[in-house]
Design a protein around this nucleic acid. Structure first.
Ligand code: ZN
Ligand code: ZN
Ligand code: ZN
Ligand code: ZN
Lengths: 139, 139
DNA sequence: ATTATTGATACAAGGACTTGCAGTTGCATA
DNA sequence: TATGCAACTGCAAGTCCTTGTATCAATAAT
């Protein structure tokens, strides 16, 4: 399990700078109880330092995604949510009727990933997906 | 293979109306060469009747999605694209480096769908997905 | 130390949808 | 034909996110 320190050194290694904004944003994601939205991150960060802009949040999230530290998922409610890779890998099942969301183990896509590699030579990047459908009691 | 007539009668069956706007929008999607965006649909429709609004296009697309006549896919270029189910079911592999997009057979998710049904009782709605990753020559 | 260079930020404007609403259209019953 | 009702549309405003730009900060070169 990577520590925040590792993430920050990974930034410097690649020529990125460690700024107070980035530290606060990363902190907000890692300490979040649940999957967190950009607006929620901004609110938390602004408690510490009120002049941070939402565009900085989005740009930092883009950076953390590229570095593989954070995943982005659309649960279908009009805003995207973020999750630290440190807090475990998984996917979600989202019921289109009752709105229920349940966790799903990451290994479920292994057969698909293998097939894609064999048949298409494609290295699929399947992380923290939201699969839509109907749950047991709604279908 | 469903004809447009069937789609239109499916609308009336469920209490929806067949309006000129809806007919033109459906026509644009079904006659499109490729996966088409809302803005492109609007442009085509406005050639016939110039006063159609983009919100009508989006509302009609939402309706056609609900009826299972049209799929919506985000290829990661900032706008969502639509595809008529009449023109065949498939998924796509999108390379995050070269941007290449290749078709993929629909059956690839069958093992996942079966597992979800058995283990979670979840009826997954997996249609016209875009899977991101790296293609043979880019990885 | 001083200057150049590059990176990062805040702000504002823009793009892709979505939503609220008032007005219109089409259908049903009388 | 008139009246009521529900579906639909266009318009405008709003939301979420992205992008251009001038300014500011940190590192590198002089
Ligand atoms: Zn999750
Ligand atoms: Zn449900
Ligand atoms: Zn397709
Ligand atoms: Zn490629």
């Amino acid at each position: 399990m990577a520590k925040s320190g590792e993430i920050l050194s990974k930034l410097t290694e690649q020529g990125y700078r460690i700024t107070p904004q980035r530290m606060m944003i990363l902190d907000a994601i890692e300490n979040a109880e649940d999957h967190i939205s950009a607006e929620e991150i901004l609110t938390l960060v602004c408690l510490q330092y009120p002049n941070v802009n939402i565009s900085t949040v989005y740009r930092t999230l883009e950076l953390l995604k590229q570095l593989g530290m954070v995943t982005e998922t659309d649960f279908g409610d009009g805003r995207v949510r973020y999750h630290s890779i440190k807090k475990g890998r998984h996917h979600h099942l989202v019921c289109q009727k009752c709105g229920g969301i349940v966790d799903m183990e990451e290994s479920i896509f292994n057969p698909v990933k293998e097939t894609l590699l064999e048949q298409y030579g494609f290295d699929a990047d399947i992380h923290h997906m939201a699969i839509f459908g109907y749950c047991k009691k709604c279908r």
